Structures are given as structure tokens and as C-alpha cells.
Amino acid sequence: MSVLVWAYGEEYEEEREDILDAVDTVFSSGCLVLGPSVRNFEAEFAEYHGLGHCVGVDNGTNAVKLALQALGIGPGDEVITVSNTAAPTVVAIAGTGADVKFVDIDPTTYLMDTAQLAAAVTPRTRCVVPVHLYGQCVAMTDIAELARTHGLSIVEDCAQAHGARHRGQLAGTFGDAAAYSFYPTKVLGAYGDGGAVLTRGPDTDRALRRLRYYGMEDRYFVEALPGHNSRLDEVQAEILRRKLRRLDTYIAARRAVADRYQEALKDTPLVLPHIAPGNDHVYYVYVVRHPQRDLILERLRTHGIELNVSYRWPVHTMTAFAGTPAGDTHLPATEQCADEIFSLPMYPSLRPDLQDRVIEALLKVLSTLDPA
């Protein structure tokens, strides 16, 4: 039996009755699109974060794109983000017509190096998209100060940081808007695609609701363009409502898995996750680092252990950005990180015996490596 980096079977067995009841609730309601489940989830997710507005959308990519568009970001504008992220972050920015500008990462946390932001700002810069990667927050107090100084918007990419905190404040509550993905692997995951945008202001909320629904505010009357078909599914919203009540339990379970890794691997040559000062990590993934990463992964496969790399290819090196200013970028910390990091299995229902298999195999493989 292979050990996978993520699996949902055991969690589903534990929550099956509630999940199926959620589906039945929607199917019995007579309302399958933008109904009470979406409205209730939006209200409850906003309340969890202490904010007034949440708009459910179809996925995390469109959550970023629509958040930017609702803030007026478009062609001719420049948006600063990182290349060490899932490609959808950058695809969403490019989808607005804005230009992407990358800054490098902190080599210890793999998060945006906020010390590089001021030098990256130009007269065309309109927005910063910090990515709260792997389960912990970027130093948002630094970004908020820079945004105030230069009159920039902030859209937080919170796809990997549901429930994470920086200096006691929840991810998603620092900027003008925050984009979430509820892809099944996430800390708060649906049983399919889903996303949401949190925002403070009623004007941005209204713009988002129009953007996700063809540019309409009332049926069949388009108020403004652009418009999209980007609605959160009613079934997924009802499932997310149920799972939101268990979010803090999921986070506690992830931290317990991380603690077991930390204890078992602390005396190995692996570089283990570093928690930035003031952060509460939720461990969307448990990322470790070693210069012989590819050899380790190859040998682990012989033990039935299949692991992921998040992310093997920095976005600025991808062919889609070749010949653009974003592609003509040298990011030494990002590029070295991409050659060395990999992720160990991490999900709340990971059984101790399966985690032990991963640890034992990893220790065995590490013992066979030639010293660097």
C-alpha cells in the first residue's frame, strides 16, 4: 500500500453522515444555484474572520482575479507578487490584463521577502498580492505600512492559510480583499472546486457579486463589464458550512501531525519548517528541504512513498512568461528553493501508522546518502 501525500477517505468515513445530509439539504431545498447555502456560508465565513462581507465564487483562481478586478486593477497596472506559488495566483493576475512583477522570497520561510517590496514599486504599481504559503502568513504589518505609503491595494492570497494568524490576527483580514480556495486538499476543503473573497467594503462586495454573475445585479440585465460565470456551487457551499464548524479541529490535527514530524526528524540533515516570528502555522503542507531532494524522492518511491514538490518550477521560469518582464527575472532564493524542497504527507486524518511508515522510510533513505 502506497502512502500518498494527501487522501480524504478516512475523513469522509468519519463525516459521511453530515456530508450526505448536506447534499440532501440542498437537493431538497428547491434552490440549486445561489441559494440559502451560499448565502449562509458567506455570512458564516465572514463572521469567522470578523469581517462584514464574503462573496462565494467558483474557485480560488477566480477569487484572486475577481478581487483584483473589483478593486479596479486591469491593463496598464502592475501587481507585485512572488514566483514561489501555485501558478494560478499569477495566472489570475495576468488574466486581469495587469503586468506581473516578482520579488524574491525569504530563504527560511519561503514567503515573500517584504524587505524587497519598496524597491520593486514603480509609478504603475497598483497592488500587492502576498501569498500566505504552506500554512503561514507573510509579514502583513510590513506590507500594510508599505501600501499606505504608496497608496497600493492589497489582495491576500489565502488559498493555503485558512485559520492562520499573524500577530494574533487572522490571514485574510489585513488587506482590501482576500482570496480563498476550497479545493479538496485545502485546510478547509470542499468535495470539488470552490472559492471565496473576503472584503471590508460594501462597494467592493457589490462589484464582486456583479462580476461573478455575468456583470448582472438583477437577472438578465448586465450592469457593467467585465462579467463572469463564477458562482460558488450550492452543494459545495452547504458542505463548507458543515466543515467550517470543524476548521479549528482540522488545524489542531494538522499541528499534531507536524509535531510528530518535527520530533522524529529534528536530528536529520533535513531543513524543517521555520515558523516566522508572530505566526501561527496551520500546516497546509509540511515542507522540508535537502540539496539531494530528487534522489531522496526517487529512493522513497521504492518504499511506496510518493511525495509532492510545491513548487518544482517557479512561475517566472514557465514558458508562458518567456519574453515578458516577469519572465526576465532572476530570483536566487526562489530558484534554489525550487531545487531542494519537498512535502511530506499532511492531512488531518493521516493515521499515525502511515506517518510512521513515512518517517521510517525517510530516515532509512537519509542514512544512505553520501554526505554533502
Rank of each mutant, 00 (worst) to 15 (best):
L4F: 13
G9N: 05
E11Y: 03
E17W: 03
L20H: 09
V26Y: 10
L32K: 02
G35K: 03
G35C: 12
D58Q: 07
D58I: 13
N59A: 09
N59P: 02
I73G: 02
G74F: 00
T85I: 15
P88W: 14
I105P: 08
P107Q: 10
T109Y: 06
P123V: 09
C127F: 00
C137N: 14
I143W: 11
L152W: 02
I154K: 04
I154E: 01
C158R: 02
A164L: 11
R165D: 06
T173M: 13
Y183C: 08
K186G: 05
G189A: 05
T199P: 02
P202N: 11
P202S: 14
D205N: 10
L208A: 08
F221T: 15
G227D: 04
G227A: 09
H228R: 03
N229H: 08
R231T: 11
V235I: 15
R245Q: 14
R246Y: 03
I251A: 08
A252G: 12
R254A: 03
R254I: 05
V257L: 05
A264S: 12
T268I: 10
P269V: 13
N279Q: 07
Y286M: 03
G304D: 12
G304M: 07
E306H: 12
E306W: 08
W313V: 13
P314C: 08
T317R: 15
A320L: 11
F321T: 06
A338L: 03
P345R: 05
P352Y: 04
I359E: 02
L366H: 00
